[in-house]
Design a protein around this nucleic acid. Structure first.
Length: 479
RNA sequence: CGGGGUAUAGUGUAAUGGCUAGCACGAGUCCUUUGGGAGGAUUUAGUCCCAGUUCGAGUCUGGGUACCCCGACCA
């Protein structure tokens, strides 16, 4: 009978994916709609996840010798217009301030959609000599892009992110930095988010406006649509030439710097929610879970003599390596609490009642599998550690299986069209890298290039135009 | 921004142009409860905004706004 309880307060993931997604966010208390079009509020539980992401990222960024700084939210319109591709890429989605202090501004101020221009303006002031390089800066900030359609976490007018900006003496050094940032993101997604994906170069049309090359981590969501998790850009000298960022090298010769920039946003939390959660609510991998273990007392006959409470405190003490919360709310029944914490995606639940007190064993229930286990109080610490590691790993394996099962090699365009119409997913295909083919494919199938896959030794026909090529690319329908 | 739809209490919903806008959940108070969303008593709160038609509008008309679905844009 324990199995047959009904939960009608959440739509099924399989029945209406996007409703399920929004419902989870609202019901788990991650976020809420704000009274501004396209904007959302990060509620404490959702913000705590972002703080955990920040903690991991920030630590790694600092380890790489990069320093945090903060630049203004406003960018003079003139500055933004300096790099042609850049302004073209962003102009349709800019928020612009035209009034200040009740007066019309002489020059309009753009609310940053990204900070290249304002940061590089400062770089040009700071960089004079090879001794000033490399200049390695990171900024934690909010940015605004006036999107037409909003979707909690995945696409909101304002979002939070981290943007790294570096300047180097040589292109090789900059390329290494681009790679280092990408590797960091791959590591975070795989080890912390437990989400598998592909990472590589973006196509010409998909790359960052103003960059030479853009690298990305592309994940496959459960509805088989693709989500870009981050970007790392090799900017070459495109911006340094425009912003006049020059240095005197060791031989006394003037050169433009080589630059990179890279970012990861709160969109990652959207990927997290979609990837792991189920019909009972959120599932958060232990490394990102604001609460890793929840302790729930089970009273019987209303009499406890405070013994259960005492035991809970002891267990919390034993588990002080973990983020533990005791749910001693009297106004809710245990069943209600079980469901509540499942909705919130807490990785492990520990139940303590009279039975547990008597046997000196705790009842543990894993959120990801729902498996129940009885563990002696004395062995709790090591067991919880084991379970945390196991959940973290299992979630990744599950994500990995989904990625593998839905990434297919395809050689005929009709098959390509069919798959994109029905089950979607990632398709590995030969593509001649011409913009024409890419645009046609997008028009006819909604699929775009997600990232480069490989150079094959044998030439094959381009999936669209049949021109021979060695290059294999991954296509998918993007979020 | 184009096409379609919806808007009633905190949430989900009901109400031929007509009487005091009904129900469930929630929330507040009190009592009893706690091994998978507890029960009773009691209280609470609503027609998106602005015009119009009408003796009379939640219901009809026009405009606005928001949300949902489908496209285009996008991390």
């Amino acid at each position: 009978m324990a199995k047959e309880f009904k939960k009608e307060y959440l739509v099924k993931k399989s029945e209406n994916f996007s409703k399920w997604y929004t419902d989870i966010i609202l019901k788990a208390g991650l976020a809420d709609y704000a009274p501004i079009k396209g904007c959302m509020v990060f509620r404490p539980y959702g913000y705590a996840i972002w703080e955990n992401v920040q903690k991991f990222l920030d630590e790694e960024i600092k380890k790489a010798g990069i320093k945090n700084a903060y630049f203004p939210i406003f960018i003079p319109e003139k500055l933004l217009k300096k790099e042609k591709d850049h302004v073209q890429g962003f102009s349709p989605e800019l928020a612009v301030v035209t009034m200040g202090g009740g007066k019309k501004l002489a020059e309009k101020l753009v609310v940053r959609p990204t900070s290249e221009t304002i940061i590089y303006q400062m770089f040009s002031k700071w960089i004079k000599s090879w001794r000033d390089l490399p200049l390695l800066i990171n900024q934690w900030a909010n940015v605004v892009r006036w999107e037409k359609r909003a979707y909690l976490f995945l696409r909101t007018t304002e979002f939070l992110w981290q943007e790294g900006h570096t300047a180097h003496q040589t292109h090789d050094e900059a390329k290494l930095e681009t790679k280092r940032a990408l590797d960091l993101y791959i590591k975070i997604y795989k080890e912390v988010f437990s989400i598998d994906g592909f990472s590589n170069k973006k196509s010409e049309s998909e790359k960052f406006p103003g960059a030479l090359n853009t690298y990305t981590y592309e994940m496959l969501m459960p509805d088989n649509k693709a989500l870009q998790g981050c970007t790392s850009h090799d900017l070459g000298q495109n911006f340094s030439k425009v912003f006049n960022i020059k240095f005197l090298n060791e031989k006394g010769k003037e050169e433009f710097v080589w630059q990179t920039c890279w970012g990861m946003s709160t969109r990652s939390i959207g990927a997290l929610i979609m990837s792991h959660s189920d019909d009972n609510g959120l599932i958060i991998p232990p490394k990102l879970a604001p609460i890793q273990v929840v302790l729930i007392p089970v009273f019987k006959g209303g009499k406890t003599d405070g013994k259960i409470e005492k035991e809970l405190k002891k267990i919390k003490e034993i588990l002080n390596d973990f983020r533990v919360e005791i749910d001693d709310r009297k106004e809710y029944s245990v069943g209600w609490k079980f469901n509540d914490w499942e909705m919130k995606g807490v990785p492990l639940r520990i139940e303590i009642g009279l039975n547990e007190l008597k046997s000196k064993k705790a009842t543990l229930v894993r959120r990801d599998t729902g498996k129940k286990e009885v563990v002696a109080f004395s062995g709790l610490k090591s067991k919880v550690k084991k379970i945390m590691d196991s959940i973290q790993k299992e979630l990744f394996l599950k994500s990995s299986r989904h990625l593998k099962n839905n990434t297919k090699d395809v050689s005929s365009y009709s098959e390509f069209k069919n798959i994109m119409k029905k089950e979607k997913g990632f398709l590995k295909v030969f593509w001649c890298e011409s913009l024409g083919c890419e645009e046609k494919i997008k028009e006819e199938t909604k699929a775009t290039t997600r990232c480069f896959f490989s150079v094959e030794s044998k030439k094959e026909k381009c999936i669209y135009c049949s021109k021979k090529t060695n290059n294999k690319w991954i296509f998918g329908q993007a979020y």
